[in-house]
Design a protein around this nucleic acid. Structure first.
Lengths: 188, 188
DNA sequence: GCTTTCATGTGACGTTGTCATGTGATCTAT
DNA sequence: ATAGATCACATGACAACGTCACATGAAAGC
């Protein structure tokens, strides 16, 4: 392997190790020493690839934003599905991500995008959702409703993750809540 | 001062110090050493009053939940205000809290209620919101709409805090989003 | 007045992120 | 091809952190 190849390989191994540790044990489990060990390098190796620990975590968020944008794009290119169902599918994809990788989800949403690449990746998702919404309510109202729907879906997912939806006060399913958001939407 | 009095005083000082440090410098600034120093005691003193650092932070969340519940209760007891405006005021109170004390807000919502007292305090808020919503849509639909509204308001606040609402994709104000949530509600 | 209790202070330990420095392999230029 | 530069990585060190065991001194109870 050439020098650039080995470097790229280690970098990928570091990101993968950090992602696995985050999923398995939450943020506290992602120590640079553990990441290095799982990636087969030492504890100081990440500093050759990332400015610091935060930037390594940011890379996880960037990757997640990008695959979420891809997923939303696939949904939009499903012409046989009604527009409202496609939009609902996009919101449910967000919630599925929160359930599958809760710590990664928190990293994406509860943290400011502290890097240009992160902001760009998050924007890609926003634009895909904007397009999904525009297919339902039209271009003019899409920004307002898009912001409302994405914020609400994020809020529903977050409330479920933190357990605040599971109290006796509200006995509703997350799917029901998402449906309540999308159902009343009509082109005007 | 009797022994119980001094103990209660230091406990209050610890909570106050932790709250101030959280507001001023975020979670990283809340170290037990800094809390102790600001409260006028040593770094080990908190362990006489709280099991853990986490339990000290939980106390901050409990207090915040309780004052939020009080605020919502005051809103509900304002008979001259229309029901929908009262509900909107409740949601805006949540958002105002997020703007005033963002780190405390994150502590309340992005963390599971890891103590019975915390769960109870959060439930008090939920029930107050439930009542505000019931005054608008009726008792039958209140749980569904209450869960939706509180999740959405939390989501809007969180998206604003993390900067994800300030992109070029959606140019909307938070107040506009809250209004879009409350405006279409009607008793059925 | 003597003993118990208890809030608090202090020393210590393991862990963490981070940096300075060392090292050995790869690249480049003659 | 070989000598020097470059670069990925390892290692030692340091300050800060949460946490606990233990010391201490004052209030409580008899």
């Amino acid at each position: 392997m050439t020098r650039a190849e080995t470097a790229a390989t280690t970098r990928r191994a570091l990101v993968r190790a950090a992602s696995e540790l985050l999923d398995e044990g939450g943020p506290d489990a992602v120590t640079l020493r553990a990441v290095g060990a799982r990636a087969g390098v030492s504890r100081g190796a990440p500093y050759g690839h990332f400015e610091n620990k935060d930037h390594l975590l940011t890379q996880l968020a960037v990757d997640a934003w990008n695959s979420l944008a891809e997923e939303a794009g696939r949904l939009r290119a499903a012409p046989e599905t009604p527009v409202r169902a496609r939009l609902e599918g996009g919101l449910l994809a967000l919630i599925a991500l929160a359930r599958r990788q809760p710590h990664l989800f928190a990293l994406m949403f509860n943290t400011p995008a502290n890097t240009p690449a992160a902001a760009e990746a998050a924007n890609r998702v926003a634009n895909q959702f904007l397009a999904l919404v525009a297919d339902v309510v039209g271009e003019a109202d899409a920004p307002r409703y898009g912001a409302l729907l994405m914020s609400s879906a994020y809020g529903i997912a977050g409330m479920e993750l933190s357990g605040h939806l599971a109290t006796e006060t509200w006995h509703v399913s997350v799917e029901q809540l998402v449906h309540m958001l999308v159902d009343p939407l009509r082109p005007r």
